[in-house]
Amino acid sequence: MTAIFESRVRADAATEKLKIFAQPQRLMILSFLLRGESSVSDIDAATGIGQPALSQQLAALRQADVVKTRREGKQIWYDLADDSSRLCVRTMEALLTEEPDPQRIMAAATTLAAPAKKPPTGTGTAGFAKIL
């Protein structure tokens, strides 16, 4: 692996990726998604961002391949795209606290616990059919 200081292309790519994380609403969304796959309404309730801005930020995160989506009927579920995205967010949460703890930062950077999967919540006829 090439160190960032050895490649301008790598430095430019890293800077572009950091720009995605350097927006407060996006960072709030990503932090919430560390807890597992969630619907737009769940993300909105947890972050208080509001529907129009939330949709805009989720679109930017999708375009940057930081989050992925899954459709279930009319419902769209969001999750972090991969372990790399999860690692970035977990490390930022550990680093960007009032009093960073070096051991906690190392644990965040070296441990990739899988998020707890939420059971699907069915609503309407489709949800009823799943019960049968």
Rank of each mutant, 00 (worst) to 15 (best):
A59W: 08
Q51L: 07
A64R: 13
L61F: 03
V67L: 01
L80G: 13
V67M: 01
L61W: 01
A59M: 07
A53E: 14
D83M: 02
L80Y: 09
I76R: 14
R62N: 11
K68S: 10
W77M: 00
G48A: 03
A45I: 08
A60T: 13
L54R: 06
D65K: 06
P52T: 07
D79C: 07
A64I: 13
A45V: 01
R70W: 03
D82V: 00
D79K: 01
R70T: 05
G48F: 12
D82E: 04
Q51S: 05
Y78A: 02
T47W: 03
Q57P: 08
A45T: 10
D82G: 02
A59Y: 06
G48D: 04
W77L: 13
A45Q: 12
V66E: 15
L54V: 06
Q57I: 09
I76F: 02
L80V: 08
V67F: 04
D83G: 09
Y78D: 04
E72C: 01
A59D: 08
A60P: 00
L80T: 09
I49E: 13
D83I: 02
Q57C: 12
D82Q: 08
T47E: 02
T69Q: 05
W77K: 08
Q51M: 09
Q75M: 13
Q75K: 14
Q57A: 13
Q63M: 11
L80C: 11
A60M: 14
G73D: 05
R71G: 05
A59I: 07
Q75P: 00
D65V: 08
D79W: 02
A53K: 13
R71V: 09
G50F: 06
V67Y: 02
D83R: 03
R62C: 10
S55I: 05
Q56W: 15
D79V: 02
Q75N: 11
Q51D: 04
Q63K: 15
K68N: 11
Q51I: 10
A81F: 00
Y78K: 00
A53R: 14
D79A: 00
E72N: 12
I49P: 09
A81P: 05
Q75Y: 11
L61K: 06
Q75D: 11
Q63Y: 10
T69R: 07
A45H: 12
Q63P: 00
I76L: 05
A81L: 02
